[in-house]
């Protein structure tokens, strides 16, 4: 039995629902934030996620920071050595989807080692009439980038846990790979 700890970066454009996603995950669906407040600085959400069928768990330290400042020095410091990435876009905003590659590049450049567990999350599926990014399009891009792909409606409390459970599972998998590598050193 092992309990891992992972620094998980929540990235994506402003207003895609990063904070709402983190908060609903923290409160197990009890709180949907109805009014929007721009996140300045950083919010930290800490939650332990058990990995099914293993007895192991991952404590996620979710760094929810302002989606405005892609090129700030503060972000470099704040996001140093990430262990996992939750990349969020808004399915009604093509621009927020297109910007995902920039966020991904940014976080990957700060990661230790060559691999970084990651998920792509399309939020606001409740706004079906305004959808601008098709699931297939997102899935194709995510696949090419080695990210697992999810769609959520934080407002309807749909599927908001799956991305985090997936990250925990990926991180545990990475740990086991590394331990195998440590075994093979001698």
């Amino acid at each position: 039995m092992v309990k891992l700890a992972a620094k998980c970066i929540l990235a994506g454009d402003p207003t895609v629902g990063k904070t709402a996603l983190a908060q609903i995950f923290r409160s197990d669906g009890a709180h949907f934030q109805k009014s929007y407040t721009l996140t300045t600085g950083v919010d930290l959400v800490v939650k332990t996620v058990p990995v099914p069928d293993t007895g192991d768990s991952v404590e996620l330290f979710i760094f929810d920071s302002a989606g405005k400042e892609l090129f700030s020095e503060m972000l470099d410091k704040l996001w140093e050595s990430p262990n996992a990435l939750c990349l969020v876009y808004d399915v009604t905003s093509e621009q927020s989807f297109n910007n995902c590659s920039k966020w991904l590049e940014k976080v990957r450049s700060l990661a230790p080692g060559s691999s970084l567990p990651g998920v792509l999350v399309g939020n606001k599926t409740d706004l079906a009439g305004r959808r601008a990014v098709e699931s297939a399009q997102a899935r194709a891009w995510a696949l090419g980038q080695g990210l697992e792909c999810f769609e959520t409606s934080v407002k309807e409390m749909e599927n908001y846990e799956a991305p985090f459970h997936c990250l925990a599972k990926q991180f545990l998998h990475l740990y086991r790979e590394k331990v195998d590598a440590f075994h093979s050193l001698l």
Partner: peptide, 23 residues
């Protein structure tokens, strides 16, 4: 990690090890 406890560091056997478990 129960399987890789810190005692492995001082058991005189380099085949056993202690792992960090994140961050």
């Amino acid at each position: 990690d129960e399987k890789h406890p810190p005692e492995n560091i001082i058991d005189g056997n380099p085949e056993t090890f202690w792992t960090t478990t994140g961050m």
